[in-house]
Design a protein around this nucleic acid. Structure first.
Lengths: 175, 175
DNA sequence: GCAAAGTGGGTGCAAAATCAACTATTTATG
DNA sequence: CATAAATAGTTGATTTTGCACCCACTTTGC
């Protein structure tokens, strides 16, 4: 459901192949969603099925044919309806917090290692987001679309930063 | 997989029925995980199947029999192994950020409503976490297990607080 | 010259998760 | 007194997701 909407959103920006969609997920969307390509191709087929998108096969000289997917008016309406239906809520879900919750089964040193390992990974992700952020032209962010897209990246940055602060606090006060 | 570990963790604290597990998920674990009861009962059956837990039927005078699940040594080992295998990483996944990312399809006022609605919901969740936090006896938190459990709640509180700050910033600067 | 990576698409399968019922009894609540 | 909520567990169907493959061709790097 969510994936279908996100794909519609991307197709709304420009017609795309499944391959290109996957690249968008990996590069610009990855801070709040990602999907396996198998899932993307299947969802794409469903969208065509429901009439939310149409396919146009475009031959290329060297590379394989492009199955270019175009959003339809119905598709645009479905996207708009999702956005208008109100803010979606989704349950928190973080396996790592589960590890922390039950980490008392480990020795103190192992708990510390667990937290430090996470700290490293979080720092790595944060750095990645920060470098993505640098690539954004802020002159263009006066335009609302660019502003909102950049905002979701800022959200991810704040979340990771908050996680780092939390990890440091836990590491400091761990009994 | 994660759910199985979390259930093992809970059974590690004390033997429980599926019904009680569900209540724990709804009350104390909900800030980082939750699960449908159907899923809990099925996972419980799998744990018994694998020898990670055993069932003991306890008759009650008034209420239905309790299917009390006890963790086994193998189960304890499996839990410890999960914790020792290192910090798990999980992809970010937030449908609401998808709405924001594509919100430019809406009018400015509708975008604002979307953000304000989310702000309300976030405040509500934060308040819930804060009241849960009040119920925690900090004298007991010198003990490592209680400290870690409280820490995961603190994490959730920080995350929600960061979300509120972000929402306010976006609402302020939205072009 | 050969291997790896990129372009573009797809299938099959299994595990995980969600939704919606349905069974029964007991204890509160209006 | 009726109705709802709590206790305890189960089944079926469907969706979502993830993993591991497979095809075929082209371009790039060593």
């Amino acid at each position: 459901m969510v994936l279908a909407r996100l794909i519609l959103g991307l197709l709304c920006l420009s017609p795309m192949t499944g391959y290109e969609l996957k690249k968008h997920f990996d590069s610009s969307i990855n801070h709040f969603w990602n999907a396996d390509k198998a899932q993307i191709y299947r969802t794409l087929a469903q969208l065509v099925d429901k009439g939310y998108a149409t396919v146009r096969t475009v031959a290329q000289s060297n590379y394989p044919d492009r199955q270019e997917h175009h959003i339809t008016e119905t598709g645009r309406a479905a996207l708009a309806q999702w956005l208008s239906a109100g803010a979606v809520q989704s349950p928190e879900r973080d396996p790592f917090m589960g590890q922390v919750f039950f980490a008392a089964e480990l020795e103190r040193d192992d708990i510390q290692s667990l937290l430090e390992e996470r700290r490293q990974a979080t720092q790595f992700i944060l750095d990645d987001y920060l470098s993505q952020r640098e690539g954004i032209d802020m002159r263009a962010a006066a335009d609302r679309r660019s502003f909102l897209m950049a905002a979701t990246l800022d959200h991810a940055i704040r979340q990771q930063a908050a996680e780092l602060e939390w990890l440091d606090a836990v590491l400091e006060y761990l009994p």
